[in-house]
Design a protein around this nucleic acid. Structure first.
Length: 271
DNA sequence: ACCTCGTCCTGGTTGC
DNA sequence: TGCAACCAGGACGAGG
């Protein structure tokens, strides 16, 4: 499931193909891909736009055009951008044709993903109302993290999945970060001591940076734009490892459910 | 303001 | 063997 490291890996791989290119043809056969549900209108608006830059904010890809419009792409669970037309693929939901003749396809088996075309000036307020700090930037500090968690009674895991706390963590990297931080996912979020906040801050950075270095984790659907897989799944310390020994203390990892999400942790060394 | 839960979606797996 | 039930989870809106 694309979280920050997966989306960042896609961004790095796809931006050279898009930047500086004009969209000469846009096809969006899935009527539910765009918000609002107007794929014909969105496709018509995108034609002729020239890409200035491809950015990322949290789990969003931000395709910025020279017109100062922006296309906000969220991959949700199974979305993927490919540097290929993917002809014949039944799950292709959109196809871009660029002015150099290359094509970029958007594939999404489960159709949770969304494309949103924003007018100049709309992007910043849209993102600011939904997303907290960008965890890999210098402005994200242990102090800031503490401020975002202060007073909150929800389980730590639920608070970290909330994109307004910080942007980009999903079910995988939250479990990994909590394992590195030696913090129990059910801990009340607002009760962390300063030392625990520093550990959590470092652990979040560590899990996300490793994920980016490994180009994300491929469990089933996630792919890079060339169709290859990430390798972060080989580095998992907690996620999905029911019954396997903790790499720190050897205790069998525990699986539970928090906020409707499967959660893995070590009951001995995470407190 | 905060928190929890249901909903969306489809393919793979599990259970009878 | 066949088929139904279940499971995966990010964002969002409803309701407490």
């Amino acid at each position: 499931m694309p979280e920050l490291p997966e989306v960042e890996s896609v961004r790095r791989a796809i931006s050279p193909a898009l930047e500086g290119r004009t969209l000469v043809e846009v096809e969006i056969p899935d009527p539910r891909l765009t918000r609002p549900f107007d794929p014909v209108g969105v496709a018509a608006e995108l034609r002729g736009e020239r890409v200035a830059r491809v950015d990322r904010r949290g789990k969003y890809l931000v395709v910025r055009f020279e017109s100062y419009r922006a296309l906000l792409i969220h991959l949700r669970m199974t979305g993927s951008l490919r540097a290929d037309a993917l002809d014949g693929d039944p799950h292709r939901r959109a196809l871009l044709t660029l002015d150099d003749g290359r094509q970029v396809a958007y594939k999404d088996v489960r159709r949770f993903g969304t494309w949103l075309l924003l007018e100049p000036g709309e992007l910043d307020p849209y993102l600011a109302s939904r997303l907290g700090e960008e965890p890999l930037l210098p402005a994200f500090t242990a102090k800031r993290l503490g401020e975002r968690l202060a007073g909150r009674r929800a389980p730590l895991k639920a608070a970290l999945l909330d994109q307004r706390t910080l942007a980009g963590l999903g079910n995988i990297y939250v479990d990994e970060a909590l394992w590195y931080a030696r913090l129990q996912p059910l801990r009340e979020a607002g009760t962390l001591e300063p030392d625990e906040l520093r550990r959590l801050h470092r652990a979040i950075r560590k899990a996300l940076e490793l994920g980016v270095a490994r180009q994300g984790s491929t469990l089933s659907d996630y792919r890079l734009p060339d169709g290859s897989s990430g390798s972060m799944q080989r580095e998992f310390r907690a996620y999905g490892r029911t019954g396997e020994p903790c790499d720190r203390c050897g205790t069998e990892l525990t699986r539970t459910r928090i906020g409707g999400r499967s959660t893995w942790y070590c009951s001995r060394c995470q407190h």
